[in-house]
């Protein structure tokens, strides 16, 4: 069997039913979900296109950041007076009510910053699906990226063209903006 070739089938967003059907036909022709990637200008839920559920660790990274923020705040509020004690008459040494403010702010800061870092890390981390892009995607097209063995290329193209797809070759990202 020859090397897999990456192709992009473009559908107008008004023809989303055809795009969903095209994914079913790719499955029928032996292309697995692993070799398919959908790109679009607006978000579509997985069930609309019959795709497996996407997975992300952004929430967990955010939670971890919140825990770190909380611990930093606890250190600043309760640890620093222990390290460098200044005792003032009639003033509590480690007051809880005022510390709640610091703990809340730093916990939220940890949550929000790490959520953003999570998005950033996942964006730049390696992708294992077919990679490619076409500027028409942001102009109201749904792109179905798929890689398939060269032998069944013609069958796939015929099946997708019958659904109104525009097939684009050479969609590898690095060639887009030299």
């Amino acid at each position: 069997m020859g090397a897999n070739v990456v192709h992009l089938a473009l559908f107008k967003e008004t023809e989303i039913d055809h795009a969903a059907e095209a994914i079913s036909r790719l499955h029928a022709l032996g292309v697995s979900d692993h070799d398919i990637s959908v790109i679009s200008g607006i978000p579509y839920s997985e069930r609309i296109l019959g795709r497996p559920m996407a997975w992300t660790t952004v929430g967990r990274i955010g939670l971890a950041g919140a825990v770190v923020g909380f611990l930093v705040a606890v250190f600043l509020s309760f640890g620093t007076p222990l390290l460098y004690p200044i005792r003032v008459a009639a003033m509590p040494f480690q007051p809880i009510p005022t510390s709640i403010v610091v703990i809340f702010e730093l916990t939220m800061l940890g949550l929000l910053i790490s959520t953003f870092i999570g998005v950033f890390v996942e964006t730049i981390s390696p992708s294992f699906g077919p990679r490619g892009y076409h500027p028409k995607v942001s102009d109201g097209h749904i792109g179905i990226l798929f890689s398939s063995p060269a032998q069944i290329e013609e069958d796939i193209h015929a099946a997708l063209r019958a659904l109104g797809a525009e097939i684009v070759h050479n969609v590898e990202e690095e060639r887009l903006w030299p």
């Binding site: 990637s37 679009s40 997985e46 952004v58 949550l111 959520t115 992708s127 490619g132």
Partner: peptide, 17 residues
């Protein structure tokens, strides 16, 4: 690029925010 995974994590992050 607007892949499913990108939209998914973006929406999750926007919801958290």
């Amino acid at each position: 690029r607007g892949t499913e995974a990108e939209w998914h994590r973006l929406r999750r992050a926007i919801t958290i925010f």
